[in-house]
Amino acid sequence: MMEDIDRKVLRILINHSRMTQTVPSIRKLCIKTGRSDSDIRSILKKLADMGYIEWNPQLPEQVKLLESPGRQESPSRYR
C-alpha cells in the first residue's frame, strides 16, 4: 500500500516531468517534501519496487516514470 509521502513524491515526479520534460533532482524533492536525502532515496526505491518508476541507486538522478495499465494508481491517472 502506498503511503501519503510516496504518493506525494510520485505526484511531484509526474507534475514536474509533465511541465519541464525532466524529473526533479533528489535535492529538489527534498526541498519540496521537507524530507532528507536518505528518506527520498528510500521512497524512490519503494516506488521502483512497486513498479511506478525505474530507478537505480547508482544513478540517483535518473528516474523514469512507468505506466502500468493494470495498476489501480497508474501515473497516467495524474496526467
Score class of each variant (00 low, 15 high):
2 M>Q: 14
2 M>H: 04
2 M>G: 09
3 E>D: 15
4 D>S: 12
4 D>N: 12
5 I>Q: 02
8 K>C: 13
10 L>W: 14
11 R>I: 08
11 R>N: 10
12 I>R: 06
16 H>I: 12
17 S>Y: 13
17 S>V: 08
19 M>L: 06
19 M>F: 00
20 T>W: 04
20 T>K: 02
21 Q>G: 11
21 Q>F: 10
23 V>W: 03
23 V>D: 02
24 P>D: 00
24 P>H: 01
32 K>G: 01
36 S>V: 06
37 D>C: 07
38 S>D: 07
39 D>V: 03
41 R>W: 06
41 R>T: 04
41 R>Q: 03
43 I>E: 04
45 K>D: 13
45 K>C: 05
45 K>M: 11
46 K>S: 15
46 K>G: 10
47 L>W: 08
48 A>E: 14
49 D>I: 02
50 M>C: 03
50 M>W: 15
50 M>R: 15
50 M>K: 15
51 G>H: 04
52 Y>E: 05
55 W>F: 12
55 W>N: 09
57 P>Y: 03
58 Q>T: 10
58 Q>Y: 14
58 Q>P: 05
59 L>P: 06
59 L>W: 12
60 P>Y: 06
60 P>H: 05
60 P>K: 00
60 P>I: 01
61 E>Q: 09
62 Q>D: 05
63 V>C: 00
64 K>G: 04
64 K>F: 14
65 L>W: 10
65 L>T: 03
65 L>Y: 04
65 L>F: 01
66 L>C: 08
68 S>P: 13
68 S>H: 10
69 P>K: 04
71 R>K: 13
72 Q>A: 14
72 Q>G: 10
73 E>T: 01
74 S>E: 02
74 S>F: 01
76 S>D: 13
77 R>G: 10
77 R>C: 12
78 Y>T: 03
78 Y>W: 15
79 R>H: 09
79 R>M: 14
79 R>P: 00
79 R>A: 07
